[in-house]
Simulated scan of single mutants.
Amino acid sequence: MTTIDVFSVNPYQVHIGPGTLDVLPSLVRDATRVAIIHPAVLSDVAHHLAPDLPQPLLIEVPAAESAKSSDVLVHCWNELATAGFTRNDLVVGIGGGATTDVAGFVAATWLRGIAFVSVPSTVLGMVDAAVGGKTGINIPAGKNLVGAFHEPRAVICDLDLLASLPEPDVRAGLGEVVKCGFIADPRILELVAQDPADAVTTTSVRFAELVRRAVQVKASVVAGDLREATSVGTKVGREALNYGHTLGHAIEKVDNFGWRHGEAICIGMVFAAELSQRALGLDPAVVAQHRELFTALGLPTTYQGDWADLRAAMSLDKKTRGNTLRFVGITEPGTVAMIDDPDEALLEECYALLAPQG
């Protein structure tokens, strides 16, 4: 088992490796009651854990993005109220990033905040959603627009939970891993390029190293900028983690969340790389590297959709300040820079390059 320390406002640890779920009972002993929020597909896991937890309450929520709604929040709050949850109690979220997002928001808002342990069961959840203290839900206007910062007591990344994860979901999760390579740890890019098939094998040593490296990147970034303060000049904080997300989130919204998050942000990263070449002087070879790595992993690099709809959706991006649209870019792998208020014609030019060829 690998343990990564997140030295944030409220420090905690991320436990990574096969069988790490075994540490959960020791993390919740001080709680009077424990609620396990989970999707139906993980009911067996939740029921298996329950006997070792104090006064367990199992709350089933819809799968994937359907869980991130106000109706689901109210349902969870009512369950906690019926069970008499107090500030001495704790919430465990087991599932993909959507489940841990909503479970964390339930914990953040119940009695203005109770303890929370995140147990991601997908690659995306492990390397992205579970670490960093962001919790929240979607509304019709956009993704993750309502939420709170609420750091977990701990994160448990049990790689055994990935055994039944469909391969397309593994590949999509690796999109976030590759993002960490482009913004902070170029060794990730080398590991993927050396053997893409091994990178997708969840039992391989290479895969475990990729997860560890991605979690370490996120832990290091959020430790220095928990609440995503606006980046100043060349100093880019937590916003760096949003590389590819401005267009990626817009694609998710416009297509009614029909895309896997990791797939959408791969397209967003190709767009951001093209923009970085023109606005920041990024080497065209690195732009090509984006397409090469994502293609090798079976991830998309092209997209066709109405630009006006996407542009409107991007105006609600969290990095936007007033009427100024801002993008995360890179000057080289491992070095991030913000692109403020790019010319509209330049944005359209970069978007046109995403169209399928032939």
Rank of each mutant, 00 (worst) to 15 (best):
L42Q: 05
T20Y: 07
A154W: 04
V74Y: 13
L90E: 08
S121A: 14
T99S: 06
D89P: 05
L57P: 02
V102D: 09
G97S: 11
A81N: 14
H75I: 13
T86M: 12
V127Q: 09
A67N: 07
V106D: 10
L162R: 05
A141V: 14
R29A: 12
S66E: 15
V123F: 11
A50L: 07
T109K: 15
D22M: 03
L124M: 12
R33M: 04
N88D: 15
G147N: 08
F85G: 03
A130Y: 05
F149S: 10
A107P: 11
K134A: 04
A98K: 10
D52P: 02
D44H: 02
G96F: 05
G147Q: 06
G93W: 00
E65A: 02
D22F: 01
I139A: 15
P152F: 11
Q55F: 01
V41K: 06
D101Q: 08
R33D: 00
D22C: 02
D52G: 08
S118K: 14
V45G: 01
P54L: 01
A148D: 06
G95E: 08
L21I: 15
V127E: 11
L80F: 03
S26M: 07
V146L: 15
G84C: 06
V119D: 02
A103P: 09
K143S: 12
V74K: 14
C76G: 12
F116K: 10
L27N: 06
A81P: 09
G93H: 03
V28L: 03
P152R: 11
H48L: 07
A67Q: 08
